[in-house]
Every structure is written in structure tokens, then in C-alpha cells.
Amino acid sequence: MTQQKPKIAFFDFASCEGCQLTVIDSLQTNLELLNAVEIVNFREAMSEKGQDYQIAFIEGSCSRKSDEARLQAIREQADIVVALGACAHLGGVNAVRNRQPLEDVRTYVYGNKADWYETYPARPISQVITVDATIPGCPIDRDEFIASVKMLLQGRIPKLPETPLCVECKLLENQCVYTMGKVCLGPIVRAGCKAICPSFGDGCEGCRGLVSEPNMESLKQVMAEHGMADQDISHKLDLFLTYQMMNLENEEPK
């Protein structure tokens, strides 16, 4: 008798589906993984739908009350729930609007038809259900996804790196973007993306989330040394990290 392959499923909530696409792309060079698992639900790529999965990957933020029941149903079925990407992990760009009054956001986009569309402040899925593992990033990193899946298949839970991005960036011998007059969140953001943004000449925007004890003071010091204003950094922090920053500031979503 052949051993049963683990069944895995993908689900999406408010997202751009870029993380699911990155999953498809990661298979380009890891086709053997398709033999090790059975994908029972991947709406973007297949018609068949199965409901007997063990590992569920969830992309996207929870952004309306009616999504909560769908999330809970997935939680009940799956042994392991994995947050896939910044939208699911952090709230990501979906939470940018949380700083604006909800009614104002709705009428700005949908005018006098705003009531037709249900919504509430966007949040990470961990605010609704228990999450066992996270693959961070916007989008996720292909190699990290493959490595995490392999660990999960061995029954282990992948851990997120705790070192700040600067460490990774300096090992790569990148020119620090502060010396080019750009803002970078590297000192307070979790490493693991091969410092791809600084490597391509742009400051880190924090899509992988803050390290557990972010040293905001040292960041502010770096900023001040390079003659940058607090406002420059708040705009950066409010791209992927709005939800976390509002929590740190104890600010309620409007």
C-alpha cells in the first residue's frame, strides 16, 4: 500500500493574488514537490475542489465580517494553517485605509452606492483564527516558500528569522541606501528576503514585518544622522505595517 500524500489547499481573501502566483512560479524549479503533496483546492489554478485538506495556505486579509465564517471553517478542517504573505500575516497594504474614517473610504470609492458593499477595517487573519505558521513578504519569497513547505511536510513548523534586514544586507555588501539619500526600514525589519529592495537600489518598506523587539530609537537616530524627518519614516511605516503601527500607538481603526 502506498502512503497517502498530505493534502494541501490554498485560499484567498482580500489580496492581489501575487502570493499564489509566486507559489505557481516557485514550482517552475521544484516540480518534484507536486509529487510529494496532493493539492485539493487552488481556485486560481484548478477546477476541482476538495474539502479534506490537512494544510491550508491562506492569502489575503480579513476585510469584512462575512469572511470570518469562511476563515473559521478552514481552521476547523485544517491541522495546520499557514498565513501566506503580508496581507494575511500583517494586514499589509489593505490596512493602509484603516487610518481613514471607514465611511469616508467607502463613499470615496463607491459614492452613494457605498452601502452595497460590505467591509470593515482590514486585519491580519491571526486576529480571527489561530495561525500555526507564517510565510512573510509582499510577495512571499519563492525559496522560503519551498523550504517552509518541506519543513511542514516533515512535521516541523518553520520559524521566522529574528535578525534585522541590515545584517543580511551588509553581508551582501550592498551600498546602504541611506548614503544615497533614501529611507530604509532595514534596522527594524525581519531579514530573509536576501535584502532584495536595497539590492535593487530602493529602501526596505517592511513587507516582512518588524522584528519582535524593533529598536525604533536606533532607527530614528540613523534617520536623523542622514538628515531625514520623522514624516519620511511614517510614510514608509504606513505602507505594509499600518496595522502594527496602530497597535503600537494604541490607535483604534476609524
Binding site: R64, V93, N94, V96, V105, Y108, V109, H235
Partner: peptide, 17 residues
């Protein structure tokens, strides 16, 4: 699909973002 409100998100942002 859940609405995502990008037009509203852009308000108040520096043009470079």
C-alpha cells in the same frame, strides 16, 4: 471579491510611493 479601496489608500501619500 472583497473591496480593497485603492483610490482611498492613495490619498495623502507622497507621489513616489
Amino acid at each position: 471579491e472583497a473591496p480593497r479601496f485603492f483610490e482611498a489608500m492613495l490619498r495623502g501619500r507622497p507621489y513616489g510611493q
